[in-house]
């Protein structure tokens, strides 16, 4: 099963990259054959790295939620970018490394959250505690109110991202 998923995904990426022939629809016949061979090789070599133990990401609803999530994410990213541009020009920074506990269980949702935090300017995930699933985040303009309490309020750092990550992959 994991072999099949890996091979199909590898073949699809190959097909998208080699559009531009005439033999079969949009592809050259030779391209299709070479792609099939390479997809089998990739599937055999990488299946355990690519798929892992649970198959919940096969559910199309989760991918739909992921596409919906892109809109609030891009909005937060644009807002944070303007904020960081302001900090670059004025030099007003207040950096800190804070620990947040997003209460996520699966590796996939934690990866989505960590990548969202890193892609949003102003916050950068530095390290992860793999036993408790806590993230260490470098925050360029730490809010003094949040720094006073010890279980950090993650809403000021990463907005509603943990809730979305939980919906997508937890």
């Amino acid at each position: 099963m994991s072999f099949l998923i890996t091979a199909v995904v590898a073949y699809l990426i190959y097909l998208v990259l080699t559009i531009g022939g005439e033999d079969v629809l949009l592809w050259n016949a030779a391209d299709l054959a070479i792609g099939a061979v390479l997809a089998v090789v990739a599937g055999a070599l990488l299946r355990n790295r690519f798929v892992g133990k649970d198959l919940r990401m096969l559910n199309p609803v989760r991918w739909l939620i992921f596409l919906v999530y892109l809109f609030p994410f891009l909005y937060a990213m644009a807002k944070a970018n303007i904020d960081v541009a302001y900090r670059v020009i004025t030099g007003r920074i207040n950096p800190a490394i804070v620990k947040i506990d997003p209460r996520l269980r699966s590796d996939m949702s934690l990866t989505i959250l960590a990548n969202s935090i890193t892609l949003t300017p102003g916050t950068l995930s530095v390290d992860v505690d793999e036993e408790t699933n806590e993230l260490y985040v470098h925050w360029i303009n730490a809010d003094p109110e949040t720094l006073k309490k010890m279980p950090r309020d993650y809403r000021r750092i990463c907005y509603g991202f943990p809730a979305w990550a939980r919906r997508i992959a937890d």
Binding site: I93, P95, I97, V98, Y136, A142, L147
Partner: peptide
């Protein structure tokens, strides 16, 4: 170490 950092939980 982060310079001018006020808090470092990972320290």
């Amino acid at each position: 170490r982060p310079i001018r950092a006020v808090v470092d939980d990972l320290e």
